[in-house]
């Protein structure tokens, strides 16, 4: 029942997103949309996915969008487009698709083909073959480790892509000037700063927990990476970008991002060297199960490193641009006045 309510809410939110003209509200709604779907995933027993969706859909992407709106303005123009043909075509397509659903397996049916083929082996044998209670982790990190490797590469690609698009070649003296302005701005948030300062170590700790606990419960390298990055981002937001930059060197995070990918890949290469196929962890140690554990541990670390650093790269790039924009505007204002 709860899932039906959640789904209905999702539709309501989606329609609200369509109707809203204020981008700020739209982004907030999108965050809610993310949270709702995360809750739905929990109701569907997909705890790992819910965890990720909450961190990403409701967290990171909302944050990024807000930063962008700060640069581009929050009002959407009413356009002269006639949405009617679009509406028609969308309705027709949707109608056809709904017509197409009638012979689909029913929701929750245990005899649906997907529960009969491939998946049973994961459920029944993964403990013996991989030795990790969280089946999602064993599929993700061992059976389909290559997909996950691809996922890490996707994230890495996005990081590099954002860097090429947004990185600003900054001169030293400019940086000083901007930072001074910045810091003064954050003076007012004294309470939050202190609370955050106390919180951040705990967040790191939580990240580590998620990283290591992924074998047994929901979590893993990806979620841990996002949480770790979130801590840094929080720090950067409260203490100014430049302070954060002093703590975390930009080139250093880029390096870590690369190292993560390489770490992941080299696990595969090491198994090649040991006469196994790529990502065959069994050959990493004398005991196959121990090999699996080792392999999963290492690649989760690779995932964690890359995700955390790319998230930071992305945030720093966006925030750096924002800073530049504000700086430029201020300069412009000064000139005009």
């Amino acid at each position: 029942m709860i899932d039906i309510i959640l789904l209905t809410l999702l539709v309501v939110v989606a329609i609200a997103i369509i109707r809203m003209k204020d981008l700020f509200a739209v982004v907030m709604l999108l965050g809610i949309y993310g949270l709702l779907s995360a809750s739905f995933f929990v109701a569907m027993d997909a705890v790992d996915v819910a965890f990720t969706e909450a961190a990403v859909g409701a967290g990171i992407s909302t944050l990024l969008m807000l930063v962008v709106i700060a640069m581009t303005g929050r009002k959407e123009k009413t356009n002269r487009h006639k949405p009617l043909p679009a509406l028609c075509i969308v309705l027709i397509t949707g109608g056809l698709l709904i017509y197409g659903t009638f012979d689909m397996p029913h929701f929750g049916a245990a005899d649906a083909p997907i529960h009969q083929h491939v998946a049973p082996r994961y459920i029944n044998d993964s403990m013996a073959e991989v030795g990790v209670p969280n089946i999602v982790t064993s599929v993700l990190a061992s059976y389909r480790a290559f997909d996950t490797f691809g996922e890490v590469v996707v994230i890495f690609t996005a990081g590099i892509g954002v860097l090429t698009l947004l990185s600003v070649a900054r001169r030293k003296e400019d940086a000083e000037k901007i930072s001074s302005i910045n810091d003064s701005m954050h003076e007012q948030h004294l309470v939050i700063r202190i609370v955050a300062k106390m919180l951040i170590p705990f967040i790191f700790l939580f990240a580590l927990y998620v990283q290591f606990h992924g074998d047994f419960g929901p979590g893993g390298g990806f979620q841990a990476g996002v949480i770790f990055a979130a801590a840094i981002i929080l720090y950067a937001m409260l203490f100014g970008l430049n302070t954060a930059r002093k703590v975390i060197n930009q080139t250093f995070i880029q390096l870590i991002a690369a190292v993560g990918v390489l770490l992941y890949g080299s696990v595969g290469i090491v198994s090649l060297m040991n006469d196994g196929n790529f990502f065959n962890y069994n050959v990493l140690a004398s005991d196959p199960i121990a090999g699996q554990h080792l392999g999963i541990l290492l690649i989760e670390w690779g995932v964690g490193c890359t995700v955390a650093s790319v998230m930071m790269i992305i945030f720093f790039s966006f925030a750096g641009r924002l800073e530049l924009h504000q700086h430029n505007e201020r300069v412009k204002n000064q000139e005009s006045s």
Partner: peptide, 9 residues
């Protein structure tokens, strides 16, 4: 578990 893995990606 398989769709969960796919959707994580």
């Amino acid at each position: 578990p398989l769709p969960h893995v796919l959707i994580l990606t």
